[in-house]
Amino acid sequence: MKDDDLLKAIGGINEKYINEADLPAIRPVKYRRRIMQTVVAAAGIALVAGTALVIPRLLRNEPADQIKPLSTDYQPIDTRILSFGVDVPAIDLAGLTEEEITEKFTSVLVYEGNVYTRSDTGTGIETDAAEALLDQNLGTAKNLFETSSEIRSNLKGDVYSLKGYGTDFRLCVKQVNRNDAGGTGYAYEILERLNGISLSVGSDLFEYRLHLSELTEHAFYETADSRTKIERETWNDVLDAMDSAAFTALTESGEVNARLVLTMKDGTEVRLILTEGGYVGYENLDGYFVKIPEETINKLYALRKGNIK
């Protein structure tokens, strides 16, 4: 018998053991109780120690704690083998003047041949949070028309990967701003690659790229005149439905009913649009949606009616 045979034999074990190990993990009660005790104790200590620990760090302008690297257990499905999903065409900058590019996309970055465009994701991000998000310095962006360069942009600055996000999705340009008084400040612009990609199901975007399950801190249901917090349980149901629904391209989407605004643990914000017919899309990606079931959408509509607090 060889070691490999044993691994293969384990493959044939009774399915009840396979299913048992596939159930969501429930941590031992003792462990959870210890967490709660720790939280209560830590809350008291934090009141006393908070000033001593946090303020000096802010004064020293040190970055916040590193964001834990995200798991990479999700990978997108290869749409070539499926009869559903969408291919978002790649942006072709050839033949466009700088003015046309700026007018069309505002900010553009080309990295390793892929085009990243401005997103509103990092618009409201605090400077400290943006600095803390930066990971590797990938190099300084050259002029957009220096086509031999691997990194080029109509923004000037160093290009960074972002902690927790793939470089195939998000990058950040850190721009230096000098004021008249001789001081220096920084501006951070997050760009996303949402073209030249295949999306089969929602999790290709919402998990593989945006990590919504792991990073969403609060979710809000936002209409023109109200903003209601979505309870965690409802949000989990909505996200499950979004993740497992197939992507579809809609040339004419229905009327926008509401927005789902997600504040993320890393300081960024994700905005989703909810249209007529139960379609959910990412605000930075026009025309591509997943359709979620009526019973799930009704939980959100109930928020509009004020039935759920």
Binding site: Q75, I77, I81, S83
Partner: peptide, 18 residues
């Protein structure tokens, strides 16, 4: 019905790939 493959991929594709 070839839809069987689509449905299997939808439900278990990411786990299988993992």
């Amino acid at each position: 019905n070839e839809e069987a493959i689509n449905q299997t991929a939808l439900k278990y594709g990411s786990k299988l790939r993992r």
